[in-house]
Design a protein around this nucleic acid. Structure first.
Length: 815
RNA sequence: GCCGAAGUGGCGGAACAGGCAGACGCGCACGACUCAAAAUCGUGUUCCCUCGGGAGUGUGGGUUCGAUUCCCACCUUCGGCACCA
């Protein structure tokens, strides 16, 4: 009798052993191909939840698999340790954010160890550590030097609950809420720091160097929002230029008015004295509106006439200039030509304010005599141009390009490209983040702090306001400083940086978390970079995953790296939901606690279940009954690996069958782990388990085949369930460690089926099936199918008209 | 409104270069072991059926010898974007 399986004993035992022998120390080895596997780093919220397990243990299994396949694998872990929850805890419970954060990190390190992952803890990086954020600040300065960081006054998104500004990417949904807390944002006019992500808009659209999910690429492409069109310059009657962007230059002749955003710099100049009061009142009212009100598409259009006029450059017509908030200052030039006949928004506006509608694209089947348009005609391919000067009669298809060429020739405009992407706003009015390394001198303005003064440390002696206002704003000593240029009194910037800035470059810091000559040791970088396989949730598609791409491109300009993409391949896992199929949350009471599960079943069973219960990219609801399958598997593996196998009546066919199954399983599991199909990999291992159980019962296979089957079962399971396989490997006399063994290889010949089941269909319906030798030729299969009595019974006296033979599988007889 | 993903047994899910639908697992049913239960083992498990078969992968069409897989239309669910000129 074997001793029972007790994960509570063997798991901690091996975790200690692995640590003591530095089994997972990952160092440069130029004799092996490298593989940098990375999983998104957690925020130290206090407890490791099942979602962390779901993200990390399959990534770990994949990294372990690559290691056994012969790669030198780097698989690091760290903490994205700056951020609001720490500060909110400070406010609510009077604990310093630093204390709270580092205590949580300590706790989570222990919990992470219970997963049995192959993290190299000597490479751990913590973004709230001064030796980390020193380099976050250094990067800010570098971006300033490159002209990629700038400060400007702008109406920006502000979360009233978090009490801070947000980047455009961090405002979500129809109601434009804060990505963190769900509160709808408001607009505030503030001086803020931005990174010029828009400089890289075009390059960010190029995914040719990376193997990323289509979904993420589509989301980023939409987010960047490239549109092609033309830039056209309109002149006011006073002669001021108003450039506009349009995607429909072919409708220029239909521009019957212009609209400026309320914040447009020319508004004041074009407004006539009679209209001044109305325009100013409108601007003031627009500023008070929240974005939700202002940007709601179904809201009735509002606006006021400025009293001023512009000249349409293509036909010389005098057209009124209006101000309306449906034109946004942040896109294009903050001014548009309005073509009501061919744009739904302009049509709605013109109808509301009784402005002229000039039809310049004639819909097929429509005649001049049909009267005014009932709605805007917006087709870009059907119809032809009318009342359009030299272009009258041109088909709509291709007209935009022709008009653009003509605009360029005649100097009225030119081809232009516009992006929806905005620059990244990185200033945060909160304490627990990396301070922006800038001082403000009355003489020299915003000046970067010299490198030798980095890091700008967060002061420890701070009092937190219940409002969430940053204590740095009240901290006289922190703010008092001198100008690095002239030495006179200056004030320190009190805003800190967006934590997405910290996580934009963490994959580089992992290489050498204590290196003090730069953000990372170039020698480590030359070997390990870039990241080969990244895994994480889809929720970062347009935030972190855009920022880190931008960062790497900027690092290329800094000469720090020679490549342009941080992560060559990406895989998005899904989410584990509560048993009720809803997102887990404390308020719903559907949270699954991994610590309890590990206590009850052991980490190996939890890992196996997480990989088995659903397709990884899909995720799904947790099910406490479902875990029994993997639990039985783990227990059966224990029994089988320790079983005393004594063959009885030997049978060559039984031996061949087991060996075939073994090699087929190796092939299947290898291919599945390659492709992140953990669920079917586990299913294949279960099938192998079933075959071995059967062999044990029958006692007909040779000892060598038995051993091969059990050994490969352990090896295939090792990445998924690292502890039990290590224990059993050792008990069976294997060399330490199983995780350093080469991945098993299959023999195609042994894996080959000896017999095939031939399915015979008559008119597409299955009527018979029988076994044949796998090497039977097409003719032989056909003859056997036609000879079948069961099949012939369906001919109903008719003779076969056509016989289709699919080799090794099926015969379809048409009568 | 626009863009994208997905609809398969009681449940989670397999199988798509067009070829046996339902691998693997959960659950359930019956049986064995047990005083009994749990655990374990065995058998069965898409539905209907007159035991010959018939129907079946969201719905309706189409292509094909053959469709879960390809094409068209629609329905439902879930994501993303949305006054972006």
């Amino acid at each position: 009798m074997t001793d029972p399986y007790t994960p509570q004993i063997i798991e901690p035992k091996w975790q200690q052993q692995w640590e003591a022998t530095k089994l997972y120390r990952q160092i440069i080895d130029r004799n092996k191909p490298k593989h940098y596997a990375l999983t998104m780093l957690p925020y130290p919220s206090g407890d490791l939840h099942i979602g962390h397990w779901y993200a990390m243990t399959p990534s770990d299994a994949r990294a372990r698999f690559m290691r056994m396949k012969g790669y030198n694998v780097l698989f690091p872990m760290g903490f994205d340790a700056f951020g609001l929850p720490a500060e909110n805890a400070a406010i609510a419970r009077n604990i310093h954010p630093s204390k709270w954060t580092f205590a949580n990190i300590e706790r989570m390190r222990q919990q992470l160890r219970s997963m049995g992952a192959m993290f190299d803890w000597e490479r751990e990086a913590v973004s709230a550590d001064p030796e980390y954020y020193r380099w976050t600040q250094w990067f800010f300065k570098k971006l300033m030097e490159l002209g990629l960081a700038y400060r400007k006054l702008a109406a920006v998104d502000f979360c009233p609950r978090c009490n801070t500004t947000l980047a455009r990417e961090q405002v979500w949904g129809e109601d434009r809420h804060c990505e963190r807390c769900g509160t709808p944002v408001i607009k505030k006019e503030l001086e803020q720091w931005f990174f010029k992500t828009t400089d890289y808009a075009e390059e960010l659209l190029d995914f040719s160097q990376i193997n990323w999910p289509e979904r993420v690429k589509v989301m980023q492409t939409n987010w960047i929002g490239r549109s092609e069109g033309a830039e056209v310059i309109f002149l006011t009657e006073q002669g001021d230029e108003i450039p506009i962007f349009t995607t429909r230059p072919d409708t220029l002749w239909g521009a019957t008015f212009m609209v400026l955003a309320p914040e447009h710099p020319l508004v004041e100049k074009v407004t006539t004295p009679e209209q001044k009061e109305a325009v100013e009142a409108y601007h003031a009212a627009a500023q008070k509106l929240t974005d939700i009100d202002r940007e709601a598409a179904d809201r009735e259009k509002t606006g006021v006439f400025t009293g001023g006029y512009a000249i349409n450059p293509v036909n010389g017509e005098r057209i009124p200039i209006w101000v309306a908030d449906y034109v946004l200052m942040g896109y294009g030039f903050g001014a548009i030509m309005a073509v009501p006949a061919h744009d739904e928004r302009d049509f709605a506006f013109a109808t509301r304010f009784d402005l002229p509608i000039a039809e310049v694209i004639r819909m097929p089947g429509r005649a001049e005599s049909d009267g005014p348009l009932a709605k805007a005609y917006t087709s870009k391919s059907e119809g032809q141009l009318v009342n359009s000067g030299p272009f009258t009669g041109t088909p709509t298809e291709g007209a935009a390009a022709r008009v653009t060429d003509w605009l360029a020739e005649t100097g009225k405009g030119k081809k232009a490209v516009n992006y929806r992407l905005r620059d990244w706003l990185i200033s945060r009015q909160r304490y627990w983040g990396a301070p922006i390394p800038v001082v403000y001198c009355p003489e020299h303005g915003a000046v970067a702090v010299p490198d030798d003064q980095l890091p700008i440390l967060l002061p420890e002696d701070v009092a937190f306001m219940p409002t969430g206002e940053s204590p740095l704003k009240q901290h006289e000593l922190f703010q008092q400083t001198t100008c690095p240029v002239c030495g006179r009194d200056a004030r320190r910037e009190t805003d800190t940086m967006d934590t997405f800035m910290c996580s934009s470059w963490y994959q580089y810091r992992y290489l050498s978390p204590h290196y003090d000559q730069g953000p990372f040791d170039p020698e480590e970088g030359a070997y390990w970079l870039p990241v080969d396989q990244y895994t994480g949730g889809i929720e970062h598609a347009t935030m972190h995953l855009i920022y880190t791409r931008f960062f790497t491109k900027a690092m290329r300009e800094m000469g720090l790296v020679h490549f342009s993409e941080p992560m060559l391949a990406l895989f998005n896992q899904g989410m584990v939901l509560g048993e009720d199929g809803e997102k887990m949350s404390k308020s719903r009471g559907n949270v699954v606690a991994p610590d309890n599960l590990v206590e009850k079943y052991g980490a190996d069973t939890v890992r196996t279940y997480l990989m088995f219960f659903a397709r990884w990219e899909q995720g799904g609801p947790w099910n406490y009954d479902g875990i029994k399958g993997p639990q039985r598997l783990i227990q059966d593996v224990w029994q089988l690996a320790l079983a005393d196998y004594q063959p009885g009546m030997m049978d060559a066919a039984a031996t061949r069958n087991l060996r075939r199954k073994t090699h087929q399983t190796i092939r299947k599991v290898t291919q599945d782990l390659e492709g992140f199909a953990f669920n079917t990999a586990v299913a294949a291992i279960m099938e192998q388990r079933n075959a071995i159980q059967e062999a044990l019962k029958q006692r007909q296979v040779m000892v060598e085949a038995w051993r091969e089957a059990v050994d490969s079962l352990l090896l295939l399971l090792a990445p998924i369930a690292p502890h039990i396989t290590e224990e059993l490997w050792a008990r069976r006399g294997g060399r330490y460690s199983i995780h350093q063994q080469p991945w098993p290889v299959w023999d195609e010949e042994t894996a080959k089926e000896e017999a095939i089941t031939v399915v015979v269909q008559v008119n597409g319906k299955v009527r018979d099936r029988f076994e044949m030798a796998a090497d039977t030729g097409e003719e032989g299969i056909k003859a056997a199918a036609l000879a079948s009595e069961k099949v012939q019974a369906w001919f109903e006296g008719k003779s076969p008209r056509k016989v289709i033979v699919v080799k090794g599988q099926l015969v379809n007889i048409v009568v």
